[in-house]
Structures are given as C-alpha cells and as structure tokens.
C-alpha cells in the first residue's frame, strides 16, 4: 500500500522533472515544475514530515514558481525557441551526467548500511521538537539565514531598479 503510493508519487515527480527539462516553452516548464514540487511534498508527507510538505508548497509553489512565472511573462522574449538545447554536441555533458547517475545508483544498490526500517518512533510533537531544535541548537544558523534573506531582498530590489542615467 505504502509502496504503491510511493511509486505513484515518485513516477509523477520524475515525469514532471522530465517535462521541466524537455518542454519547449518556459511556461510549460514552470507548470511541470509545480507538478514535480507537489509530488515531492506528497513524498515528504510519506516521510512523516508534514510541516516540511506544507513549507514546500508555500515556499516553492506559492512564492518561487509564481516569481518564475511573473518574470517569464514580464521579460516577454519571443525567441523562436527552435533549439531547446545548447548548440554543439552535448554528448560529453550527457555522458558525464549519466556516469554520475550510474555511479550513485551503484553506490546505493551496493550499500549495505542503509536501514530498512525506521529507527525510532516519531509520532506527534514533531513541530514542537522541530521548533525546539531549531531555536535552541541552531539559533545562529537561523539568524544567519534570516540575514541572508534580508540581504537577498535588498539585493533583488537594487538589481531590479532602473539605472539612473
């Protein structure tokens, strides 16, 4: 049952990811990316991280993809998009990526140390423990992340301004 759900969401995510890379129109890519993110958030729910699934949908689908769609429509560059891929032979890059993938798959398959079952039982109180860990043990990274977000906010505003000429 659980494996069936996992396979459904995994196949959906992989198909949507292929759609992102292969689509001709960037808008179609963005919509495929949205489908991929929703499938991945379903997988987060299966991993008993419902908070992260919700954050995934809020941040990725709600903010990042809307930003992508806005920019895609705002830039409005009508390249004929006859060529989706870089000119020249991409065999080297594709071969390298395929090699990387095969290597990682072999390592995962050969690996004997991956647990088959869950170590403990994380039932309930997930958000409370997460918050305690985040604000007690990871306070400094949290503050750094907030500063980074602030810098990114200011930087995006400065970058998108019209240059005074």
């Amino acid at each position: 049952m659980e494996q069936g759900f996992f396979l459904i969401f995994a196949v959906g995510a992989v198909a949507a990811a292929l759609g992102v890379v292969l689509a001709r129109n960037p808008i179609h890519s963005a919509v495929a990316l949205m489908a991929c993110f929703i499938n991945i958030s379903a997988i987060f729910v299966m991993l008993q991280a419902p908070l992260l699934a919700v954050i995934q949908i809020f941040v990725y689908v709600g903010a990042i993809l809307v930003l992508f769609l806005f920019v895609t429509m705002m830039l409005d560059i009508r390249d004929a998009s006859l060529r989706r891929f870089l000119p020249g032979s991409n065999f080297a890059a594709l071969g390298l990526v395929a090699l990387l993938g095969i290597e990682m798959l072999v390592l995962v398959m050969m690996g004997q140390r991956f647990p088959k079952t869950v170590a403990g039982t994380t039932t309930g109180g997930e958000i409370r423990e997460l918050g305690t860990t985040l604000f007690a043990d990871y306070l400094l990274p949290f503050e750094v992340a907030s500063v980074i977000l602030l810098v990114a906010l200011i930087g995006a505003i400065v970058l998108a301004q019209k240059e005074p000429r």
Binding site: V20, V21, A23, P26, S29, A30, F68, V71, T72, D79, S81, R83, R84, F85, L86, P87, N90, A93, L94, L96, V97
Partner: peptide, 10 residues
C-alpha cells in the same frame, strides 16, 4: 537540464 538547456529560466 542545467548543462544542456539553452534558456536561462529553464
């Protein structure tokens, strides 16, 4: 996708 696509957005 990062290596072979031609459109920056993609």
């Amino acid at each position: 996708g990062v290596l072979i696509r031609r459109n920056v957005l993609v």
